[in-house]
Design a protein around this nucleic acid. Structure first.
Lengths: 77, 77
DNA sequence: GAGCCATGTAAAGCATATTTGACACGCAGT
DNA sequence: ACTGCGTGTCAAATATGCTTTACATGGCTC
């Protein structure tokens, strides 16, 4: 498996929209490492559902507002 | 870490609400194994975000309709 | 120019999710 | 009683998420 992930996110945008929150800040607030935030923010892999919920809650927005799932996305049509 | 998961779901209910869809059916439709469906349905572990999106899409409902995340869940208040 | 801060990269290792295959049980139909 | 189906369980193997540590860069301040 070489594909990174199909889920995109708006974390970076939300971070700035929430008072210049840094990656480290967000990481701490959620309870994960900075690494994890970086990787997710860059779409290297999709987080666990729990992580996703925590992130969306950190920004006080619905989950669908943070993560977008592109259409029916076939692996290899 | 011994806790299984904090995320609950309504998969079983949705399956029946969608024409007696069996676990195997759902698994195939989503592209995972029956094992995975069983485990998630029983809350043994929380799926990846992608999996969650696929499941909710299989039922044509918003993600928050399938998975619920309990309050602010503190590990040890 | 030295020092701090925010961000990015990399590798090793542990934890968890997902797969595969096999078996058990209750229930309906023949 | 036998068969098929939906569900559940167990165990081992592979894949992926997450952590830890360490180092590199650009921008900023002093």
């Amino acid at each position: 498996m070489v594909k990174s992930t199909n889920v995109t996110n708006s974390i970076r945008a939300l971070r700035f929209a929430h008072g210049e929150m840094t990656q480290a800040d967000l990481a701490q607030r959620i309870g994960v490492t900075r690494q994890t935030i970086i990787a997710i923010e860059q779409g290297r892999y999709s987080p666990s559902l729990e992580m996703a919920f925590q992130i969306s809650r950190a920004f006080a927005v619905p989950l669908d507002d943070v993560f977008q799932y592109p259409d029916t996305e076939r692996q290899s049509p």
